[in-house]
Design a protein around this nucleic acid. Structure first.
Lengths: 138, 138
DNA sequence: TATTGTTATACTCTATAACTATA
DNA sequence: TATAGTTATAGAGTATAACAATA
């Protein structure tokens, strides 16, 4: 099971980064950007303004020390901005720029497409069962 | 789905490497060693003698260029040996030493334990469904 | 000519620890 | 005293290209 898990993760990441090669982003950069986009446009629009570095790190499974470098590159390319957090002046609020949001949308769609293609022919309920297992492992 | 996949992979790797911290091996080294052990003792005992670098790379999802460094360290620590392949003199046969086989057994058991603990309470059939999804993604 | 494994280079990710500015 | 983020350092993974030995 766990070996299959690793293989599947590796395979999907491979395909995904190949399809998004035009964006010229590393896996961690894709991960960060995709995650920022998901919150900004989806689940909780009222919080779309940004996330702290800590929140982003927890969501992406990236160490703070790695995230600093990732965010440096994304900021230099104009995809995100860093600003002070209103409530806590130690914290940094990471926000997508317009270009960053557009890039994030491309990433989100590529992920959705890949899933649809791979899982289209499976019997109903199978995907739900798989999600249950994944959450149990997590 | 794919996001859950990444999270689950990350979480299991985290726990696994914490439990095996005593071995002082990197994730790639654990992966290579566990894979060598699996073939040696399990599925196809008659091939237990070794695997080529290419085969190992395909099984673990590790690049040849990374594998060279991984195998260098494992060889230096006396866990594997590299020998000439009988049939093809370009190829290298990677074999577990006695100590390497013992270490591989520890890794294999840790993985099995982790799976059992995490998936014990799930309804029958759920795990099979998850495997179907993972293979579809792969 | 193509393939196996290694080497070289440059960049990214990681772990650890120290540091700053806040709280 | 503790937390958020950054910096510094060293080791490990990756892609890419080149190479020697062999097929």
């Amino acid at each position: 099971m766990i070996l299959e898990l690793q293989r599947a993760t590796h395979a999907t990441l491979q395909v995904l980064s190949a399809r998004l090669a035009d964006l010229d982003l590393t896996p961690s950069e894709l991960n960060a950007l995709g995650n920022l986009g998901r919150t900004a446009s989806g689940d909780r629009p009222e919080e779309g303004a940004g996330r702290t570095v800590s929140e982003l790190g927890a969501a992406t499974g990236t160490r703070p020390t790695t995230l600093t470098g990732v965010l440096d590159r994304l900021e230099r390319r104009g995809l995100i901005t860093r600003a002070a957090h209103p409530g806590d002046r130690r914290a940094v609020l990471v926000t997508l720029t317009a270009e960053g949001a557009a890039t994030a949308a491309v990433i989100t769609r590529a992920i959705a497409d890949l899933e649809r293609e791979a899982l289209a022919d499976l019997p109903a309920g199978t995907v739900e069962a798989a999600l249950t297992v994944l959450r149990a492992l997590t």
